[in-house]
Protein backbone atom coordinates (compact mmCIF):
# COMPACT_ATOMS: atom_id res chain seq x y z
CA UNK A 1 0.00 0.00 0.00
CA UNK A 2 2.55 2.55 1.09
CA UNK A 3 5.01 2.14 -1.81
CA UNK A 4 2.15 2.58 -4.23
CA UNK A 5 1.11 5.77 -2.49
CA UNK A 6 4.64 7.06 -2.77
CA UNK A 7 4.74 6.21 -6.46
CA UNK A 8 1.45 7.99 -7.02
CA UNK A 9 2.69 11.03 -5.16
CA UNK A 10 5.86 11.12 -7.25
CA UNK A 11 3.84 10.71 -10.41
CA UNK A 12 1.77 13.72 -9.43
CA UNK A 13 4.74 15.72 -8.20
CA UNK A 14 6.74 15.49 -11.38
CA UNK A 15 4.36 17.31 -13.74
CA UNK A 16 3.48 19.81 -11.04
CA UNK A 17 7.11 20.71 -10.54
CA UNK A 18 7.58 20.96 -14.28
CA UNK A 19 4.56 23.22 -14.39
CA UNK A 20 5.56 25.60 -11.65
CA UNK A 21 9.25 26.00 -12.41
CA UNK A 22 8.40 27.03 -15.93
CA UNK A 23 6.20 29.85 -14.77
CA UNK A 24 7.45 33.40 -15.08
CA UNK A 25 9.41 34.34 -11.92
CA UNK A 26 6.85 35.53 -9.42
CA UNK A 27 8.67 38.42 -7.82
CA UNK A 28 9.47 40.20 -11.04
CA UNK A 29 7.52 43.40 -11.69
CA UNK A 30 7.13 42.48 -15.37
CA UNK A 31 5.50 39.11 -14.66
CA UNK A 32 2.17 38.75 -16.47
CA UNK A 33 0.39 38.76 -13.15
CA UNK A 34 1.49 42.34 -12.62
CA UNK A 35 0.86 43.46 -16.17
CA UNK A 36 -2.51 41.79 -16.58
CA UNK A 37 -5.92 42.88 -15.38
CA UNK A 38 -4.47 43.81 -11.97
CA UNK A 39 -2.98 46.97 -13.44
CA UNK A 40 -6.34 48.56 -13.82
CA UNK A 41 -7.41 47.60 -10.32
CA UNK A 42 -4.33 49.27 -8.88
CA UNK A 43 -4.70 52.30 -11.09
CA UNK A 44 -8.40 52.98 -10.87
CA UNK A 45 -9.64 50.73 -8.09
CA UNK A 46 -9.99 53.41 -5.45
CA UNK A 47 -11.80 55.82 -7.71
CA UNK A 48 -14.09 53.16 -9.19
CA UNK A 49 -15.01 51.35 -6.01
CA UNK A 50 -14.32 53.70 -3.15
CA UNK A 51 -12.36 50.96 -1.42
CA UNK A 52 -8.81 51.77 -0.45
CA UNK A 53 -8.26 48.10 0.35
CA UNK A 54 -8.07 46.74 -3.16
CA UNK A 55 -8.53 43.16 -2.02
CA UNK A 56 -11.93 44.22 -0.75
CA UNK A 57 -12.50 46.09 -4.00
CA UNK A 58 -11.81 42.96 -6.03
CA UNK A 59 -13.81 40.82 -3.65
CA UNK A 60 -16.93 42.95 -3.50
CA UNK A 61 -16.90 45.03 -6.65
CA UNK A 62 -14.93 43.67 -9.54
CA UNK A 63 -15.44 40.03 -8.68
CA UNK A 64 -18.46 40.31 -6.44
CA UNK A 65 -20.11 37.54 -8.39
CA UNK A 66 -17.46 35.09 -7.12
CA UNK A 67 -18.00 36.23 -3.58
CA UNK A 68 -21.74 35.82 -3.94
CA UNK A 69 -21.28 32.14 -4.66
CA UNK A 70 -18.53 31.83 -2.13
CA UNK A 71 -21.09 32.63 0.56
CA UNK A 72 -23.45 30.23 -1.17
CA UNK A 73 -20.76 27.57 -0.73
CA UNK A 74 -20.72 28.07 3.05
CA UNK A 75 -24.47 27.94 3.06
CA UNK A 76 -24.21 24.69 1.10
CA UNK A 77 -21.99 23.29 3.82
CA UNK A 78 -24.62 24.14 6.40
CA UNK A 79 -27.42 22.66 4.29
CA UNK A 80 -25.26 19.56 3.87
CA UNK A 81 -24.73 19.15 7.59
CA UNK A 82 -28.42 19.76 8.27
CA UNK A 83 -29.48 17.26 5.63
CA UNK A 84 -27.30 14.47 6.96
CA UNK A 85 -28.90 11.97 9.31
CA UNK A 86 -28.32 12.82 12.95
CA UNK A 87 -25.45 10.61 13.96
CA UNK A 88 -26.64 9.70 17.40
CA UNK A 89 -30.03 11.05 18.37
CA UNK A 90 -32.23 9.42 15.76
CA UNK A 91 -30.66 6.02 15.78
CA UNK A 92 -27.99 4.57 18.02
CA UNK A 93 -26.57 2.76 15.01
CA UNK A 94 -25.75 -0.60 16.43
CA UNK A 95 -23.56 -1.98 19.12
CA UNK A 96 -20.13 -0.63 18.13
CA UNK A 97 -21.46 2.90 18.00
CA UNK A 98 -23.12 2.56 21.36
CA UNK A 99 -19.92 1.20 22.84
CA UNK A 100 -17.89 4.04 21.36
CA UNK A 101 -20.35 6.54 22.74
CA UNK A 102 -20.15 5.11 26.20
CA UNK A 103 -16.38 5.31 26.01
CA UNK A 104 -16.56 8.93 24.82
CA UNK A 105 -19.03 9.88 27.49
CA UNK A 106 -16.66 8.95 30.20
CA UNK A 107 -13.70 10.90 28.89
CA UNK A 108 -15.20 14.34 28.63
CA UNK A 109 -12.78 16.63 30.40
CA UNK A 110 -14.52 19.15 32.65
CA UNK A 111 -13.84 22.75 31.66
CA UNK A 112 -11.24 24.39 33.85
CA UNK A 113 -12.57 27.41 35.72
CA UNK A 114 -9.62 29.46 34.48
CA UNK A 115 -10.39 28.77 30.86
CA UNK A 116 -14.05 29.44 31.46
CA UNK A 117 -13.33 32.75 33.11
CA UNK A 118 -10.84 33.90 30.49
CA UNK A 119 -13.14 33.03 27.63
CA UNK A 120 -16.05 34.87 29.14
CA UNK A 121 -13.84 37.81 29.93
CA UNK A 122 -12.34 37.99 26.47
CA UNK A 123 -15.56 37.52 24.51
CA UNK A 124 -16.59 41.19 24.43
CA UNK A 125 -13.11 42.29 23.38
CA UNK A 126 -13.04 39.71 20.65
CA UNK A 127 -16.41 41.00 19.49
CA UNK A 128 -15.08 44.52 19.36
CA UNK A 129 -12.12 43.36 17.34
CA UNK A 130 -14.46 41.64 14.95
CA UNK A 131 -16.56 44.75 14.58
CA UNK A 132 -13.48 46.81 13.91
CA UNK A 133 -12.39 44.43 11.17
CA UNK A 134 -15.86 44.50 9.75
CA UNK A 135 -16.29 48.26 9.58
CA UNK A 136 -12.70 49.16 8.68
CA UNK A 137 -12.45 46.44 6.03
CA UNK A 138 -12.44 48.89 3.14
CA UNK A 139 -9.33 50.69 4.34
CA UNK A 140 -7.41 48.09 6.35
CA UNK A 141 -6.87 44.37 6.12
CA UNK A 142 -10.07 42.69 7.17
CA UNK A 143 -13.67 42.51 6.08
CA UNK A 144 -16.78 40.45 6.41
CA UNK A 145 -15.20 37.03 6.21
CA UNK A 146 -12.56 37.76 8.76
CA UNK A 147 -15.17 39.23 11.08
CA UNK A 148 -17.35 36.18 10.54
CA UNK A 149 -14.49 33.92 11.51
CA UNK A 150 -13.89 35.85 14.74
CA UNK A 151 -17.60 35.95 15.56
CA UNK A 152 -17.77 32.22 15.05
CA UNK A 153 -14.70 31.77 17.19
CA UNK A 154 -16.45 33.61 20.01
CA UNK A 155 -19.49 31.41 19.66
CA UNK A 156 -17.43 28.26 19.62
CA UNK A 157 -15.26 29.27 22.54
CA UNK A 158 -18.35 30.13 24.53
CA UNK A 159 -19.92 26.89 23.40
CA UNK A 160 -17.00 24.92 24.77
CA UNK A 161 -17.30 26.67 28.06
CA UNK A 162 -21.05 26.99 28.49
CA UNK A 163 -22.21 24.02 26.45
CA UNK A 164 -23.39 24.17 22.85
CA UNK A 165 -27.09 24.24 23.67
CA UNK A 166 -26.86 27.48 25.58
CA UNK A 167 -24.98 29.10 22.74
CA UNK A 168 -27.55 27.85 20.27
CA UNK A 169 -30.23 29.56 22.31
CA UNK A 170 -28.55 32.89 21.60
CA UNK A 171 -30.17 32.87 18.18
CA UNK A 172 -33.97 32.61 18.37
CA UNK A 173 -35.55 29.87 16.27
CA UNK A 174 -37.58 32.28 14.18
CA UNK A 175 -34.55 34.30 13.18
CA UNK A 176 -32.30 31.38 12.47
CA UNK A 177 -33.33 30.66 8.85
CA UNK A 178 -32.93 34.35 7.98
CA UNK A 179 -29.66 34.86 9.82
CA UNK A 180 -27.94 31.83 8.37
CA UNK A 181 -28.96 32.94 4.90
CA UNK A 182 -27.98 36.55 5.60
CA UNK A 183 -24.95 36.61 3.33
CA UNK A 184 -26.50 35.29 0.09
CA UNK A 185 -29.66 37.26 0.74
CA UNK A 186 -27.66 40.45 1.24
CA UNK A 187 -25.90 39.77 -2.03
CA UNK A 188 -29.17 39.13 -3.84
CA UNK A 189 -30.61 42.33 -2.45
CA UNK A 190 -27.56 44.39 -3.40
CA UNK A 191 -27.51 42.76 -6.81
CA UNK A 192 -31.10 43.82 -7.33
CA UNK A 193 -30.45 47.32 -6.06
CA UNK A 194 -27.41 47.60 -8.29
CA UNK A 195 -29.48 46.37 -11.19
CA UNK A 196 -32.03 49.06 -10.46
CA UNK A 197 -29.44 51.81 -10.02
CA UNK A 198 -26.91 51.02 -12.72
CA UNK A 199 -28.69 48.62 -15.04
CA UNK A 200 -26.14 45.88 -14.35
CA UNK A 201 -26.56 42.96 -12.04
CA UNK A 202 -24.50 43.57 -8.92
CA UNK A 203 -23.47 46.92 -10.34
CA UNK A 204 -22.23 49.68 -8.03
CA UNK A 205 -22.88 53.31 -8.90
CA UNK A 206 -19.29 54.43 -9.62
CA UNK A 207 -20.04 58.11 -9.31
CA UNK A 208 -21.83 57.98 -5.97
CA UNK A 209 -19.38 57.06 -3.26
CA UNK A 210 -21.91 57.22 -0.45
CA UNK A 211 -24.15 54.70 -2.13
CA UNK A 212 -21.13 52.56 -2.94
CA UNK A 213 -19.93 52.52 0.62
CA UNK A 214 -23.40 51.86 1.98
CA UNK A 215 -23.86 48.93 -0.33
CA UNK A 216 -20.40 47.59 0.44
CA UNK A 217 -20.99 47.87 4.14
CA UNK A 218 -24.33 46.16 3.84
CA UNK A 219 -22.65 43.27 2.09
CA UNK A 220 -19.90 43.08 4.72
CA UNK A 221 -22.43 43.03 7.52
CA UNK A 222 -24.41 40.37 5.75
CA UNK A 223 -21.31 38.25 5.22
CA UNK A 224 -20.18 38.68 8.81
CA UNK A 225 -23.59 37.84 10.29
CA UNK A 226 -24.41 35.00 7.96
CA UNK A 227 -20.91 33.56 7.94
CA UNK A 228 -20.61 33.76 11.70
CA UNK A 229 -23.96 32.13 12.33
CA UNK A 230 -23.28 29.37 9.84
CA UNK A 231 -19.80 28.59 11.18
CA UNK A 232 -21.13 28.53 14.72
CA UNK A 233 -24.08 26.38 13.74
CA UNK A 234 -21.81 23.90 11.96
CA UNK A 235 -20.04 23.46 15.28
CA UNK A 236 -23.28 23.13 17.24
CA UNK A 237 -24.75 20.60 14.81
CA UNK A 238 -21.72 18.40 14.93
CA UNK A 239 -21.46 18.64 18.67
CA UNK A 240 -25.00 17.55 19.43
Amino acid sequence: MKPWSLLLVLLVALPLVVGVVNLPPHDAPDAPIHTGVGVRYLARGVEETGNKNLVTAVLLNYRGFDTFFEVVVIFTALAAVLALPRGSAADPGGAPAAAAKAANGSDIVPVSPVVSYVVRLMAPFMAMFALAMLFRGHVTPGGGFQAAAVFAAIFIALGLVLGPTRVAELVPDDWRPWLQGAAPLAFALIAAIGWRLTGAFLGFPTDDHTAQEAMGLFLEVGIALGGGVILARLFVEMET
Binding site: L82, P177, G181, P184, L185, L202
Partner: peptide
Protein backbone atom coordinates in the same frame (compact mmCIF):
# COMPACT_ATOMS: atom_id res chain seq x y z
CA UNK B 1 -28.83 35.50 -17.36
CA UNK B 2 -27.46 36.23 -13.86
CA UNK B 3 -30.92 35.88 -12.35
CA UNK B 4 -31.26 32.38 -13.75
CA UNK B 5 -28.23 31.37 -11.71
CA UNK B 6 -29.18 33.33 -8.63
CA UNK B 7 -32.80 32.30 -8.50
CA UNK B 8 -32.24 28.65 -7.49
CA UNK B 9 -29.55 29.73 -5.05
CA UNK B 10 -31.74 32.28 -3.32
CA UNK B 11 -34.57 29.79 -3.48
CA UNK B 12 -32.31 27.34 -1.65
CA UNK B 13 -31.37 29.90 0.98
CA UNK B 14 -35.02 30.71 1.59
CA UNK B 15 -36.13 27.08 1.75
CA UNK B 16 -35.57 26.66 5.52
CA UNK B 17 -37.47 29.87 6.17
CA UNK B 18 -40.34 28.98 3.85
CA UNK B 19 -40.64 25.49 5.24
CA UNK B 20 -39.98 26.38 8.86
Amino acid sequence: LPWTIVLPMVGAVLTPAVAA
